[in-house]
Amino acid sequence: MDALMTLKQINYEVADKQILHDIDWQIPTGAHITVTGPSGGGKSTLLRIMAAMITKTSGELTFAGQPIESYDPIMYRRQVSYCFQQPTLFGETVADNMAFPYQIRKQSMDREHVITALTNFGLSERTLQQAVTELSGGERQRVALIRNILFLPQVLLLDEVTAGLDEDNKQLIHAWLRRLNEQKHVTTIMITHDATEIAAADQLVKVVAGRLEVAQ
């Protein structure tokens, strides 16, 4: 399979502190990868570089055959979408959050599509009018994740999105991610510390002290 993303000799340093060392990594189209490693090892930094949220100090990063520098960062982030560990929801209601991806594309919200997305993820039309402050942790995370996929990206980068959630929510999110990967062919890269998730990984990589180690 062709590599969708290629990282060559990626280094990242901040204030003279080297966070990532010479990362070489090829991510095939449609991959479902689990990333693990000790806290502070550089996993999040690596994903944030891949999401164009921060810029590498040196090295080459290509996406779909083109260097990352050749893309407009905003258009790039719509293709390589980053999901946060403890997401902030916008505005007052769930509907405000669902409307945001449309708003930034100067479109009006496709209600049918949003309701389908909510239902596919164990939520319902009624959720739309719910205040964001009334949601449980698992619901918040699901609402946040739906924001990322209302317009399907090619790559979904997930930074410990199940951390702190109960088993039911973890299961729901895993099943949902697998469907996205298998049916919609979204390449998914997920950071986790969870032993069950690590054990269930198709492909596992470790980031230790700023270096990438391919496990299994």
Partner: peptide, 16 residues
């Protein structure tokens, strides 16, 4: 800061 970062991650323009 966090809210702004999340909007950017969703592909928002700087003004949005």
């Amino acid at each position: 800061r966090q809210g702004v970062l999340e909007r950017l991650a969703l592909g928002s323009g700087l003004l949005d």
